[in-house]
Simulated scan of single mutants.
Amino acid sequence: MAELLAAVGKNVVLMSALTAWFLAQVLKTLTSYWKHRRFRAERLVGAGGMPSSHTSLVVGLASAVALHDGVTSALFAVSIVLAGIVMYDAAGVRRAAGKQAKVINKLVREMRVEHTIKETRLKELLGHTPLEVMAGAFLGFFVAFLFHRFF
C-alpha cells in the first residue's frame, strides 16, 4: 500500500490537479472569511465561492496533461472537454440553480408569515460567477505550470 501511495504521489499530472483543487479550497475559505469576517469551515469543502475549485481541478488537470503529453494527445482532448463541461456547469447550470434556490427560500419565508409551512432552506451558494471560474482556471494553470517546471 505504501508503494502505491508513493507511486501516486509521483504522478505530476494528478498532483498538479489535486494541489490546484486544495489551494482553491483554502483560498475560498480565506476570501469567505475576508468577505463575512467570520470563519466558515463549510467553505473548505463546499461548492461556490472564489475561486472555483472545480475549475482549478480540471484546468490544472488539462494543463498538466498538455505540458506532460502535449496538446495533440488523446488524453489532452479528453481532459479539455471535461474542463469545458465542468466550467460551463459551474457558471451556468449550478449558478442558475442557486438563484432559483434563493427565490424559493424567499417564497417559503413569505408563506410562513401567512400560512403554516414547514421551513426548508435550500442551499443557495451552488455555482460561480464568471470571475470565480476564471480565477479558478488561472490558479489551475499556474499550479500545473509550476509542477511541470519544478517537479
Rank of each mutant, 00 (worst) to 15 (best):
I85T: 10
E3Q: 09
A96M: 09
A74W: 15
A64E: 11
V13S: 00
K102T: 11
H115L: 15
K106G: 02
V143I: 14
R40M: 08
F141L: 08
A2R: 07
L82N: 13
V86I: 12
A97T: 06
L122V: 09
V13K: 04
S52A: 09
L122F: 12
T31N: 12
D89F: 00
R38H: 09
A77D: 14
F39Y: 06
G70A: 15
R43E: 01
W21S: 08
E132M: 08
H148E: 01
K102D: 03
A64S: 15
T116H: 12
R149G: 12
D69T: 10
P51C: 14
F150W: 15
G49D: 06
L57G: 13
R95P: 02
V81D: 05
N11R: 09
F142A: 12
K118M: 12
F138E: 03
A17P: 03
A7S: 12
T29I: 04
L30P: 05
K99N: 13
F142M: 06
Y88E: 05
K123Q: 11
E3C: 02
S52L: 05
K10Y: 07
A83T: 08
T19F: 09
F141H: 00
F147Y: 15
S79M: 14
S52C: 08
R40W: 07
H148S: 12
W34P: 04
H128C: 10
R38D: 02
M50C: 03
P130N: 09
F145P: 06
V59K: 15
R95E: 11
S52T: 06
Y33A: 14
A91E: 02
E110W: 00
H115S: 13
L82G: 13
G48Y: 02
F147I: 04
E110Y: 04
E119F: 01
E3A: 06
K123E: 12
A83H: 09
R94Y: 00
L146C: 12
F138D: 04
T31D: 05
I104E: 00
G49V: 09
N11V: 12
F145K: 13
V86A: 05
L139R: 13
H68Y: 13
A6V: 06
R94K: 13
L4C: 06
A90D: 00
V143A: 04
I104Y: 00
A64Y: 10
E132H: 10
V93Q: 03
G46W: 00
F141A: 13
K99M: 14
F142H: 00
T116I: 12
E132D: 04
L122A: 07
A101E: 01
P130L: 10
G92Y: 01
L30Q: 11
G49K: 05
R37M: 08
G70D: 01
A20L: 10
F138H: 03
T31S: 14
A62H: 14
N11K: 07
R149D: 10
S73V: 01
G46N: 04
A66P: 01
A74S: 15
F138L: 13
A91Y: 01
N11E: 11
G49Q: 06
F145L: 14
V81W: 03
